[in-house]
Structures are given as structure tokens and as C-alpha cells.
């Protein structure tokens, strides 16, 4: 069996959640029969919720990395509402929900409390959706970054305010239909702004660690949480979590869409330390953005009677720019 060690090919490698051929310690947290299930069954997320999945992936990984010494602060939003309606909570970890816009600040307070109480082994995460992170919670988040408070902030980005009924956030992509950017008029869907890519803003704070991830690549996500937990100070992970409700996609397509977002180049998956990009996940099977857009009803108006060629080209250009900027097609990007 000694020769086994020389074979680095494992059928599915690390693409699947688990792999019976890997050594126990090389397997994912999610593959473990004794995983924490930090976000327990019985939560009220929609069928196929990407955020519920992303949250369990991330928090279980953080629990593992912190030897189960973890506290979380949660912004208002889907994740909060579906996980903690009285009289039941799905969280198995110490968890607090305060407000929509203050999760980062509450976490700062928690971290300060842990420090002053001599419980530095207890780690603090803050989490919120894109609205609670890129919009209303942005001030507190930036303050937490700037002070380099010992908090890992995780944004579950589903690109709109889903909890309130799918309204536009500053993370909503151009052309997307939301309740406040309806596909009517001369320029249907969300207008193309200049974009507000929070990972880049986080990097501008030169905090120890910034990473993006998707629910389509668990091993990458877990590795990033582990890496993030190896630092002290402010850290930020931005996870793309497709939303069947808001995106108008099939509940079984959640992971596929996250994968397509990455494979088309629309969502660059990378990590940065102290403001400098360290690596990017290479595109494995390059695809046009159309493959990503078509399965989503929020983009259905692009594929009506008249194909919205210009708009699709504009979205493709954004993907191409990401590919250039982050070197997503380069072999060494792997």
C-alpha cells in the first residue's frame, strides 16, 4: 500500500465534498460524520437556499478551526430570520442578532470582551447578507476593518435584499430584475453602475486577509476560512450564495449557478493578504456568460423575443475584465 502515497489522483480529487480515498485529515469538514452542523436542521430557509448552505459551510469550518471556540454576530436578513424565529433557533453556537447595519460593530464589541476577559481562544465572526454588508452595514464594517479588530466578517452575497422581497442592493448586478429594478422601460432591470465590489474595498483597508468563495467549491471555501482563522485582526470572506427565490432559478440549481458564476469569470474567486492578491482560482471549463444568465429568471428579459445582444456583451465584458484582472485563465492561477 506504500505506493498509494505516490498517486496524487483521487478520482474526484477535492471537487466533491468528501473522498473516501483521502486520508481522514485531508477530508473536508463537511464530510465529517461529527461535523458541527452549526446551522441545524429545521431552519426556515427556502428550498435550495445558498445562504443556509454557505453559512453552515463557513461556520462549521470556523468552528473546526477554532476548536469550537466561536461566537457569531449576525446582521438582520434572511439568515437571521430563517434561523431564529421564536421559539426556535437553528444555531448551535453562541450567536447574537442585534441590527441590520451593525453586525461588524457588535462583533468588535464581542472581540473586545473576549480580549478583556482573557478568553482570546474564543474567536469572533460576524455575518450578514450583501445588503447588511455592502449597504447599511458598510460604515461599521469599514470601521472594523480600519481598526483591524479581531473579527472574521463573512458576507453571504445573494445580490439583493431577498428577505424583504428581492429589492436591489449595491451588490445587484447590472440588468438584473429586482422588485425595485423591474424589467420594464427602455433599460430594463438594474442599471449598470460603477459596481461596488466589496472584497476590493476590503483589500483597500489592507487588512490581513480578504477572500472570495462560492458554495460551489466547498474545499476552497473551507481552506479560506481556515486561512482566515490563522490570522488575528480584521478578515473578510465574501461568499457568493445563489438565491432560488430572488434569482428565479430552480432550487436544485443553486450550486450549479455558483459554479457558472465562477467559470464564466463573472465572480472572481481569489484571496488576498494585507491588500495584495495571493492567488486566484483558475477557470476550469471556460464558458460564456450566457450559460450563467439563461437559467435565471432575473435575466429572462435579456433572452426575450429580441436577444439583448448589447447588454449580454456588456456583461461578458465584465467577465472578460475579471479574467484579465485576476488572471483566471492562467495555469498558475490554480
Amino acid at each position: 500500500m506504500s505506493e498509494l502515497q505516490t498517486v496524487s489522483f483521487y478520482q474526484t480529487g477535492t471537487f466533491t465534498v468528501g473522498n473516501r480515498l483521502l486520508k481522514q485529515e485531508e477530508r473536508s469538514v463537511q464530510a465529517n460524520m461529527q461535523r458541527t452542523n452549526s446551522l441545524n436542521s429545521g431552519h426556515r430557509a427556502c428550498q435550495g437556499c445558498g445562504e443556509a448552505l454557505g453559512a453552515r459551510y463557513a461556520i462549521d469550518a470556523a468552528m473546526n478551526a477554532s476548536n469550537r471556540q466561536l461566537i457569531a454576530a449576525n446582521a438582520t436578513g434572511c439568515l437571521e430570520v430563517f434561523s431564529t424565529p421564536y421559539p426556535e433557533t437553528s444555531w448551535q453556537i453562541p450567536w447574537i442578532h442585534s441590527l441590520f447595519g451593525n453586525a461588524a460593530a457588535v462583533a468588535t464589541g464581542l472581540a473586545a470582551a473576549m480580549k478583556v476577559k482573557g478568553k482570546s481562544d474564543v474567536r469572533v465572526v460576524a455575518q450578514g447578507g450583501d445588503g447588511g454588508t455592502t449597504d447599511i452595514g458598510f460604515g461599521c464594517l469599514s470601521g472594523m476593518f480600519e481598526r483591524n479588530d479581531d473579527v472574521l466578517y463573512i458576507c453571504y452575497d445573494n445580490e439583493a435584499y431577498m428577505n424583504t422581497g428581492v429589492q436591489r442592493s449595491s451588490a445587484t448586478p447590472g440588468a438584473a430584475r429586482t422588485a425595485t429594478t423591474m424589467p420594464v422601460g427602455e433599460r430594463p432591470g438594474n442599471s449598470f453602475g460603477q459596481g461596488k465590489f466589496l472584497p476590493a474595498i476590503a483589500m483597500a483597508h489592507e487588512i490581513p486577509y480578504v477572500a472570495t468563495a462560492t458554495v460551489a467549491d466547498l474545499r476552497d471555501l473551507e481552506a479560506k476560512v481556515v486561512r482566515a482563522m490563522s490570522f488575528r485582526g480584521a478578515r473578510y470572506i465574501h461568499i457568493l450564495v445563489p438565491c432560488p427565490l430572488g434569482w428565479g432559478s430552480a432550487s436544485n440549481d443553486t450550486i450549479r449557478l455558483a459554479r457558472l458564476a465562477k467559470e464564466t469569470g463573472l465572480f472572481p474567486v481569489f484571496e488576498a493578504e494585507y491588500g495584495e492578491i495571493k492567488s486566484a482560482l483558475a477557470i476550469r471549463r471556460p464558458l460564456p456568460v450566457e450559460d450563467y444568465l439563461r437559467p435565471q429568471k432575473r435575466f429572462a428579459h435579456l433572452f426575450g423575443k429580441n436577444l439583448a445582444v448589447d447588454t449580454i456583451a456588456r456583461i461578458q465584458a465584465k467577465a472578460d475584465k475579471n479574467i484579465r484582472k485576476y488572471g483566471l485563465l492562467a495555469k498558475e492561477a490554480v
Binding site: 447595519g101 451593525n102 460593530a105 457588535v106 468588535t108 464589541g109 473586545a112 470582551a113 461599521c140 481598526r147
Partner: peptide
């Protein structure tokens, strides 16, 4: 001694940090 003094970015953050700290068991 044994006190974390945090220069926050707004009063909203000030109260929010205090909320977190208090929930973490610290006199805030």
C-alpha cells in the same frame, strides 16, 4: 487597566460595539 478603549466610527457603532461587548460579558 483591563479595559479596551475603542475609537469607533460613529455613535451607531459606539452603541453597537457596547452591545457586543456587553453580550460578551464585559462591563461596557
Amino acid at each position: 487597566k483591563n479595559c479596551e478603549f475603542i475609537n469607533v466610527e460613529s455613535e451607531f457603532a459606539a452603541m453597537s460595539v457596547a452591545i457586543g461587548a456587553s453580550a460578551g460579558g464585559a462591563r461596557s
